[in-house]
Design a binder for these strands. Sequence first.
DNA 1: TGAGATAATTGTATTATTCAATTATTGACA
DNA 2: TGTCAATAATTGAATAATACAATTATCTCA
Lengths: 149, 149
Amino acid sequence: MPQNTSQDTSLERSYLIFFHFLMMSKHRVIELGKEYDLTAMQAMTLFLLEEHRAMHELKTIFNCDASNITGLVDGLEAKGLATRYEDPNDRRIKLIRLSKKGDKVRASLLSRAVRESQLLANLDEDEQRQLINLLAKATDGHDKMTPER
Amino acid sequence: MPQNTSQDTSLERSYLIFFHFLMMSKHRVIELGKEYDLTAMQAMTLFLLEEHRAMHELKTIFNCDASNITGLVDGLEAKGLATRYEDPNDRRIKLIRLSKKGDKVRASLLSRAVRESQLLANLDEDEQRQLINLLAKATDGHDKMTPER
DNA sequence: TGAGATAATTGTATTATTCAATTATTGACA
DNA sequence: TGTCAATAATTGAATAATACAATTATCTCA
């Protein structure tokens, strides 16, 4: 068995713990998405489409090439989950919104993600609330994804 | 601007906040890794290799096919950052450990990740500690990555 | 008006990930 | 002891994800 002989500082150790958490979460979303015949990006995009969003917003959030978003939205449209439409204020921009079917799939996916992810299962209700509040505060202002606005 | 007309429950909203946080973190690691000419997986693997680890452990943590780990470790060896060696107790198993150079790169990467990530910049010291403690508790027992053991 | 920036798309190239088959080793147990 | 199922790692081929380059349309603003 490995012995801990590390020189990492406490903050660095914290970072590693956080990173661990991050990777596990990703796995859970991917596995859940598969059940709905969605790629990881498609599943995550449903999460993001509580409201309509411009394609370039998705590009920023996913930190990827714009062409990937074209393909991503093509896929969602092909499945009848979302539709594109022009931004009336700027005809360069296309906005995406979920269809009725997309809304349903999103609701089901999100509900199951929350119930089954077990990510917070080790925490009592109060701790869960604390954690989420801290994450929300930490996240605030970092990019345009903030679902509160 | 999108108006919030959501039906999401508070727990679901929390999940989305968490997810937001998760994606941003991933981007930061990827960008940092690039500066060191490392792929995302290579950078994350350095994080994991505080101690030696068996290849199949990495497979579990990354939730990927075993063949990816072969390629991953090939890459790290080619760069002189890590070495394979046989587990003396089970000759099927290969253990990976960082070289001296690998240790140095890991330390630099981790230190910069912590200092520059700005992930926790919105929180004061006390809140940071709280957050990390909650994440550690939430994470505990979820798989074999826990760096404390 | 017109130069420069942004948004989206297409086709292509590159990279990442999975799949199937193979070899070696281990552990269980009849 | 010998056999069989399970595990670990590897290889090569197939598939999927992501990035790059070039193009069109639109917007901003000096």
